[in-house]
Design a binder for these strands. Structure first.
Length: 197
DNA sequence: ACGATGATAATCT
DNA sequence: GATTATCATCGTT
């Protein structure tokens, strides 16, 4: 029994700090999570689920403990851990982590990364290093090839504005990014949120 | 170190 | 047809 499933059946804002320091395994590769973002679904303008249930966001409305994987910017896959009971769309985006097992495999998948600290620094890099693909959407994180180990006690963490979220959902209004201070694998803060003009 | 830009396709309007 | 929860690369300080 890797963890108590009930722990994830709570709002994303409560689950997010629990996932810092957690270890997510997929096959031979494992990462220790160091940076996440909370998305609260229908009340959150920055969430995919803000405008209700669609085919893409279906798993976000499903039971907690499953993976919400989506395709982004034409070439990237990002992964969330679904939170809250079934029917409530709430999830935590895995933004960065440190590879602690299967480093060789991760290096092979990410040949452009020349430092190990950058192997899983960024949401799309993390999924690439773990080998998560769009087909993993809806997978149970407690079943093979996945495994999730939550830390026994929560570690220190910092919070700040979410990255890459444009419009009302971004900025200081929703400081729902959580990270482990002083971690080399945490992505640098980007202030520029929107594009154009 | 930092900022601008192109790549590239699913999803939604 | 517009938008996007991004990354790598190339330019300038």
């Amino acid at each position: 029994m890797p963890f108590t499933p009930g722990l994830l059946a709570r709002p994303a804002l409560e689950v997010a700090p629990l996932l810092l320091g957690a270890v997510l395994t997929r096959g031979p590769v494992a990462v220790r999570i160091t940076e996440v973002e909370a998305y609260l679904g229908e009340i959150d303008p920055g969430s995919h689920a803000f405008r209700g249930r669609t085919p893409r966001t279906e798993t976000m409305f499903g039971p907690s403990g499953h993976l919400y994987a989506y395709f982004s910017y034409g070439m990237h896959v990002c992964a969330n851990v679904v939170c809250s009971p079934e029917g409530e769309a709430s999830a935590v985006l895995l933004r960065a982590g440190e590879i602690i097992a299967g480093v060789d495999e991760a290096r092979w998948r990410r040949p452009t990364s020349h430092r190990d600290a950058a192997l899983a620094r960024g949401p799309a890099r993390l999924t690439k290093a773990l080998g998560i693909v769009l087909g993993d959407d809806g997978a149970d994180v407690s079943c093979a090839p996945f495994d999730l180990e939550l830390p026994t006690h929560s570690s220190d963490f910092a919070t700040g504005p979410r990255t890459g979220v444009s419009g009302v959902g971004g900025g200081a209004r929703y400081p729902w990014r959580f990270w482990v201070p002083g971690e080399a694998s945490v992505s640098p803060y980007r202030r520029h949120a929107g594009r154009g003009s």
